[in-house]
Write a protein that binds this DNA or RNA. Sequence first.
RNA 1: GCGCCGGUAGCUCAGUUGGAUAGAGCAUCAGCCUUCUAAGCUGAGGGUCACAGGUUCGAAUCCUGUCCGGCGUGCCA
Length: 548
Amino acid sequence: MKYYLEIIQPIIERSLDRLGILYDDLKFEIPSNPDFGDISTNIAFKLSKKLKNPPKLIAEKIVDNLEFDLGLIEKAKIEGAGFINFYLSTEFYIQALKKLLSKGTNIGRFDLGYGKRVNVEYVSVNPTGLLHLGHGRNACIGDTISNLYEWLGYDVTREYYFNNAGNQMTMLANSIYARYMQLYFEKDYPFPEDGYHGEYIIEIAKDLYDHYADKLKDNNDNNLNLIKKFGENWCFNKIKKTLERLRIRQDIYFNEDSLYTDGKIDALLNEFKSRQLSYEKDGAIWLALSQLGLENDRVIVKSSGEPTYRLPDIAYHKDKFERGYDLIIDIFGADHIATIPDVLAAVSALGYDISKVKVLIHQFVTLFEDGQQVKMSKRTGKSYTLDDLLDEVGPDVVRFFLIMRSISTHLEFDLNLAREQSEKNPIYYLQYAHARICSIFENAKSFGIILDDDYDLNLIGTKYEINLIKSLLGFEDAILSATDKSEPHILCDYLKTIAQAFHIFYHNDRIISQNLELAKARLKLIEMTKYILKNGLSILGVSAPEKM
RNA sequence: GCGCCGGUAGCUCAGUUGGAUAGAGCAUCAGCCUUCUAAGCUGAGGGUCACAGGUUCGAAUCCUGUCCGGCGUGCCA
């Protein structure tokens, strides 16, 4: 858009100034229908009420006062009830392509972060099980958001928050112990009622036996603690391996327990108390959220003396603020939504600027196979894990599928489509465009065409070439918009349009031909296309193969 | 009950700071390989944008109400 705006906006503004018209919401858009020109403004509609004139009349006045360079703009025309549509010349697009080319392989990189620090927290699965598709969605969204901020020039910290204490870990230990007993000593040993039924527990029990044989047979605290630690490590190793396969590596693994050992929980409790934000009732400590505009007060320390999850959540966010981040992004699944207002209200009451916190909630993933829903729960036993999926379709397909829908929509994962190694699978459309371009460069080399600084872009001008340039010009907007709206799928959609523009151009205009000068100009065009595809895919964490 | 997210083509989904004839992929039907990768290209059919009101030059988009689906609403995390 900026390539258009830097040309068009001043022209309209000058005309309005000359007419003495005051305006405040001058906006432009690229019409979806190319018959309505290359760029358009609805300013005449906006001014209609204020000036008490029909839009068409205002548009006519504005157009009469336009002064522009006929080299870049062919014409300005009033269409519809008062849209002002600009039709741009080939020259405009060649100039714009030159600007893109000057950025080279850095296309899509920005300098907007000025070293500002962003913390993105994602995955954050407790080490009690394996990752399933919902976690995968969280992971891919978090990683892509992190990539986007990195490309904008921010200093990004990728963080994983976990809790390796409490009931759930005890239950993990008990579950493993029960399987261990059942497998090797006592077939009918009772399995805990709320235990983890997943098949992986059996695997852990087997590994446990390999390490300790019958040494852990006695049901005592010592042994169960050992089993707990063993189970935690086992799960964490698996989780990290799965993430690695997804090309995800996080910088900080933040253990909730450290908040206790570092005294941060106690300090927070004292702070609440001294600010009179907490009180005791029924033997528990309550946080007075109703004083902060929320509906209900909540317990932060149970009468048993144990904290509820809210307390460490608040302490954790406070800690992130104290580490000095300019932006704190949390990626949560829809099931976490309830705690967010509490945490934000509490942190805000402690004096932190919660406009620095961005909470992204993504909806769930359902897995479909042959039109049937596949269960993924770790409680019910049989489950389809993220690892299973990676085994079947590989990281590119997984990452793309989990990112290609808006985060606020329910994601239906079609296993049959993902398995499809054909044109039906949308990811191949993008990768194929990239591979095709690489192959053309190989051919150019064998034809002895050397791509140096001696080329003439003025040879470009077919409608397919222009159309491709138009899509190329949208790359930076797509990145900015995806980041701004926290919607990585915008980038997926964009890359599809650019791959399409390329495929159509490829089909209609031959690149390598007898006309060497033309070939060189076209190679420059597809070189830019290649950089954009590659950079775009790289932000999505998807590979850009040179051959397919 | 209340809160959040969603309801758009047969299916999966874009499009919501209000714009012109509501788009894509898949599926269906019909075409294009002696020339740079056919994992590609071209064309056709397919819609009461859940429903009902309202706001205005103009509504899939904003407001109100209703219906349907998911998630949440703990001294669980």
